[in-house]
Amino acid sequence: MKLKPPINLAWIRFTSCSGCQLMLLNCESSLAELARIVAIRDFPLASSTLAKNAEIDIGLVEGSITTSSELERLLAFRRKVHLLVAVGACALTAGVNSLVRGERRQAMTKVYAGQGDNWNTFPPQPVDHFVKVDGRIPGCPPEPGELLNSIGTLLNGGWAGHQVMPVCMECRVNENPCLLERDRAPCLGPITLAGCNARCPNLGVPCEGCRGVVAEANRDELCRLFLAAGLTDQEINHRLERFGETT
């Protein structure tokens, strides 16, 4: 269904760094055009307009869910939102938030010196553990072009196509030397969802997998390559789990 401008846009944020929201504000040259087609209904980082019960056409969600009050807010948000789009690694896989090991209460007590006991928090969960998610924009942070593209396509009644190939393919197209081969660097390009145009490997920096894992990823082969490059089991685990993947 094609939406008629001005479309009502809201952006709710849970446990995260604000980076996904910031990436939209970082599309400076497109903000004026965006302002013509989008009416901000709820986006506290950018605007003082807060609409309590307004119907929302597109609701963007950043961050993972870690407290019961966040969960309540998420459920309420889902009820008033026509299309819900999960944005960024935290919303999609719980992101780096989920790396806290062991008993959460113990970690709370340690970091907040004895004050952690009465905080009602649970291990970070991705948004789709609780509500239906209509669209997904991966990345930590997401690529700015992808954010605009997604909003634009939604406006026209479609949904931006999902990438199916890994970052590795983009690297080939860009004719980059393979970092895994050349430097024996722990590059996650072979199993990571493309769409960033191999941003980091283009610069000689190994992919850290921030866009999540591609379908039908050959994890076994990658682990074998990492072992051959001299990484230990634990180092491989740490590398893979940063954005939600486990061996």
Binding site: F14, T15, G63, T66, T67, E70, V96, N97, L99, V100, R101, R104, A107, M108, K110, V111, Y112, G116, W119, T121
Partner: peptide
């Protein structure tokens, strides 16, 4: 903000 426990993770 919700606890993110970076000093622990």
């Amino acid at each position: 903000e919700s606890p993110r426990l970076f000093e622990s993770l």
